[in-house]
Design a binder for these strands. Structure first.
Lengths: 201, 201
DNA sequence: ATTTTGACTTTGTAACTAAAAAAGTCAGAA
DNA sequence: TTCTGACTTTTTTAGTTACAAAGTCAAAAT
C-alpha cells in the first residue's frame, strides 16, 4: 500500500473506519476488518494509530468537523438569530441520526483515552461559541437583548443536551427511535422559543 | 407482631424499608433484614406486599409524599412566582440528596413493575401542575405573561430534569457528589431565570 | 529512513458452570 | 385474619475456560 505521505494514509484509515463504524458500530468493528477494507495489514494501522481508542477518537473528530461544517453553513444562511437557533435543531438531529453508531457516549465515559475529554470540551466550546455568535449578532441587530451571550449560550447548549438525555427512557445510549427523535425535536423547539422570548425583553 | 390493623402494619414495613434503603441502598437491602428490623418473619412482609418491587415502589411513593409536602409548603410561603420557582430548586436538591439511595432510576427502567410507570407519571403531572399553578398565579398578579402555563410548566420540569442528567458525567445513576449538586444548582437557577424572563415579556 | 508485514503474545469478552444468597411460596399455627 | 418455619425457585456472584480481537516486534520491502 503506497500513498503520498503519512497524513494521506491516516485519512484513508479514518474514512474506512468511519464507514465500518457507522454501518456496524464501533465496538462491532475489528481492526482486521478495517485493514482488509484497505488491503493492508492490521500492523500497518498500528503504525498510524497507537491503539483502537485513538482511531475511534480520530473518527469522532472527523464526524465533528462534518457537523460543524453543516452547522456553520446553516447558521450563515439564516436571516436572523431566531431562525439560526431553530435551524440548528434539525442539523443536530440529522447528525445524531447519521452517526448514532459511533458510540460517542462510550468514548466519553471511557477514561482510557486521556485526550477524549479535551476533544469533547473543545467541540462543546465551539458549539457554544457559535450560539454565542448568533446571540451577539441578534443583539447587534436589535433583535435580542443580552448582557452575557456566552453564559446564555452555554446554558442553551447544556439544556438542549439535557432535553435529549431526559427523553431517552433507557440508559445512556446512542440508539434513538424516529419517534423519540420527533419528541426531542418538539421539546427543543419549545425550549428555543422560551430562550428567544427571554432574550427579547 | 400485633398491630391495630392492616394499614398500620403496611406503614411500619414501608418505614423500616425506607430506613434500610436510604442507608444502604435498595438493592443491598434484603427482605430478611427488613423483617428482622421489625422482629417479624420475612413471610409476613409477603402478606402485605406481593413482592419486593411493590414494596420498593411503596417506599418511593412515601418519599414522593414527603417531597410534595415540602414543595407545597415552600411554594405557599413564596411571595411571588419568581421566588416560588427559585425556592423549588433547593427543595428538589435536598430531596435528591436525602433519598439518592432509593434507586429511583432502577425502578423507573424496570418494566417488571407495571404500576411504576403510572406512579411516576402521576408524580410528574403533580409537579407540573404545581409549576403551572405558580405561573398562573404569576399571570393573575400581573407578574408574568403566558398563554399556555401547562405547556410551559411541562417544558420547565423536563428541562430541569435534563440539566440534572446532562451534568452527571457517569451513566444514569443516583449517586451525585456535593460538587455536582452545586453545579446542577447553578445551571438550574440560570435556566429558571431565563424562563422567568421569557415569561415577563 | 520510512513504511509495511507475518507471526507472535497479551488482553478482553462471551459462554458455561457451581455455589451462595436472596426472593418468593405455602401448609399450618396463633 | 395474621403470622411463621420450612421449603422451593430465582438471581447474583465468582470462578473457569475458550476464543476472538487487540496489540507487539523483528525483519522485509520500498
Amino acid at each position: 500500500m503506497h500513498t503520498e505521505n503519512r497524513d494521506e494514509m491516516r485519512e484513508r484509515i479514518i474514512e474506512a473506519a468511519l464507514k465500518r463504524f457507522t454501518h456496524y458500530g464501533a465496538s462491532k468493528t475489528t481492526m482486521n476488518e478495517i485493514a482488509d477494507d484497505l488491503h493492508c495489514s492490521k500492523a500497518s494501522l498500528y503504525y498510524y494509530f497507537p491503539d483502537k481508542h485513538a482511531l475511534h477518537l480520530a473518527v469522532l473528530e472527523k464526524a465533528g468537523e462534518m457537523y460543524f461544517q453543516e452547522i456553520e453553513q446553516s447558521t450563515a444562511e439564516a436571516p436572523n438569530a431566531e431562525a439560526a437557533l431553530l435551524d440548528m435543531i434539525p442539523v443536530r438531529q440529522n447528525f445524531a441520526r447519521k452517526f448514532c453508531r459511533l458510540e460517542l457516549f462510550k468514548v466519553l465515559k471511557d477514561k482510557q483515552l486521556l485526550n477524549s475529554d479535551e476533544t469533547f470540551r473543545l467541540a462543546r466550546e465551539k458549539e457554544t461559541a457559535i450560539v454565542a455568535g448568533i446571540i451577539r449578532k441578534g443583539v447587534a441587530g436589535g433583535e435580542l437583548v443580552s448582557d452575557n451571550p456566552d453564559q446564555v449560550a452555554a446554558l442553551y447548549i447544556q439544556s438542549m443536551i439535557g432535553l435529549r438525555l431526559s427523553l431517552s427512557t433507557r440508559e445512556l445510549t446512542d440508539e434513538i427511535s424516529e419517534e423519540e427523535f420527533e419528541t426531542v425535536r418538539q421539546w427543543q423547539v419549545q425550549l428555543a422559543d422560551i430562550f428567544i422570548k427571554g432574550l427579547k425583553s
